[in-house]
Nucleic acid binder design. Structure first.
Lengths: 141, 141
DNA sequence: CAAGTTGTTTTGAGTGAATCAAAACAACCG
DNA sequence: CGGTTGTTTTGATTCACTCAAAACAACTTG
């Protein structure tokens, strides 16, 4: 549905613009994209869009809770459509591919530290590092 | 002990140099420092050291297992002396202060994902986000 | 302990990712 | 349809980090 994106934008009180719809569409179904890749996809159907607009849109959508932003060490920031379901990530140490994992144990936020050291915690983020299937079967670097 | 650093360098097969000893010393006791802060501290007692040397040293020591490097979203890379004990981190969403927490549940690596999705996992990294004590008592931004 | 080899540090330039700012523009309200 | 508010474009800039070549210092060997 083409208006699906417009709906979601309105629902969080954001103005409906072509770049915003295009960014939402670009991230649909596909897992984890960096700003540059989103930019390329958006350009495909909306060639006047600038990279800065994409950064602005990604920031707005992340702020509004429509997107989640993750920043695995060694990769540029990645954006994904799954939000609010407290899933976590697997990152390949070789090719930096990212996959989703569902919540590791129990209820969100999944974990409580033994001692919070005076902090008021609101989020727990878990990143698993390892080799993905295709990198494991390739000759070692 | 001034030779303590030299010992540790030799133990992992690295040449003993003044910048390396100074970097190890700069990180002693203090929790989590970025490259620039390490650079400033090293400069204090070894004024000819360049920032690039610090980057090189940090990379060498991290590679040798003498330091651990963490990269919380929104902060430059931080280095710490605790390694191999599988502890995790608390990061303040306001001031980006980092504190240590011990392993959350059971034995290292603390967690196993429900479904590894074909990945061969070797590390689990947990980051807790929240407000530190002093940021909580300050007026909100 | 002097010379050579290897690896480190300096010096200087360059990159990628992201941010900032001002002007042109478009969405939504009435 | 006109005005206000917020978005996007255009262009420059920053920050953290990396690359490369030449000068230099640590450990080894004779």
């Amino acid at each position: 549905m083409a208006t699906d994106e417009a709906e979601r934008l309105r629902a969080v009180g954001l103005k409906v613009t072509a770049p915003r719809k295009a960014v939402l569409a670009a991230l649909d179904g596909h897992g984890h994209l960096d700003a540059d890749t989103v930019f390329e996809r958006v350009r495909g159907e909306l060639p006047t869009t600038s990279l800065q607009a994409v950064y602005g849109v990604l920031a707005a959508l992340t702020g509004a809770g429509l997107l989640r932003r993750i920043e695995p060490a060694g990769s540029p920031a990645l954006y994904e459509r799954r939000t609010g379901d407290n899933h976590h990530h697997l990152v390949c140490t070789k090719c930096h591919t990212v996959a989703d994992v569902d919540c590791v144990v129990g209820q969100p936020p999944c974990l409580e530290p033994a001692d919070a050291g005076g902090f008021t915690i609101h989020t727990a983020e878990v990143t698993f590092w390892g080799l993905c299937e295709s990198c494991r079967s390739e000759p070692a670097a």
